[in-house]
Amino acid sequence: MGKYITKRILLALVTAFVVASATFFIMNMVPGGPFLGEKAVTPAAQEALEAKFGLDKPLSEQYTTYMNDLLHGDLGPSLKKRGRTVNDIIATKFPVSAKLGGMAILIAFFVGVPLGSYAAFHRGKLIDNIIILFSTAGIAIPSFLSSTLLMYFLSAQWGLLPSKGLNSPACYIMPVIALALHPTSYIARLMRSSMLDVMGQDYMRTARAKGVSQVKSIFKHALRNAILPVVTYLGPLTAQLMTGSFIIEKIFVIPGLGSEFVGAITSRDYPLIMGTTIFLAMFIITLNVIVDILYAVIDPRIKLK
């Protein structure tokens, strides 16, 4: 177990290093470096700016300064928002996105798992087919489409829900549904097939044969085993929700990190793009490690590997 966890953490550290370095070198492909952008300025101003951001130094030195700053948690200043640092922006915007994403994960998990299990218990019946139909369709809709369609019908056409902002609890309904639709469908499908797999196992028959009630056998034996693939999916899911929220926040005009990121892409605020990428990447990598460790705790078999 200890060895497994150490290995996971080491791998995560290497990944974090690779992502941070890649971000730096990719950003240096922008003419003039990330702090200048491609806008033409007078030579004198250019020199002054280069000196200010240390761009006159050789690349290797810039890289070490950058990595050093990163280790101290300093993501630098924003290019377009005068006087604000990237850290500052992330600190104010991230909680909004995290709240939205967290709600979507909870919905995806607590709707997807029962739905998938229910379909598996009623295999081949009408309800199973309906659940399969909806989850297959749900997987094929990108989040930007589900959100725009929701907005068109629920808000523009029928006027049921507010279309933008996060001022009232009702504002959360559409973005969270749009964000949760894809993962809920995915989890339902995953759960259904793994539940069917588990139900066919010998130990399920044994449990029933020795007199364990149907309900108890499902909760104590089937669910615990069938949920494992879903747990492994939670890591990639958070990454997906983070990126999915870029567009959803933009569409619903939510002041989160996602809309900030999209705004940074359009306004070419490279330090902000760079900082947000690194922050989100570290966040996702950390969550992946936690999920991996959690997985080892739930499934004792993994320790052997």
Binding site: L11, A12, T15, V18, V19, A22, T23, I26, M27, M29, V30, A239, Q240, M242, T243, F261, I265, R268, Y270, I273, M274, T277, L280, A281, I284, I285, N288
Partner: peptide, 15 residues
């Protein structure tokens, strides 16, 4: 384990 969409956006906006 690299968050691919982030890197894609980064590359697409700079490449």
């Amino acid at each position: 384990t690299v968050p691919d969409v982030l890197i894609i956006i980064l590359l697409a906006s700079t490449l």
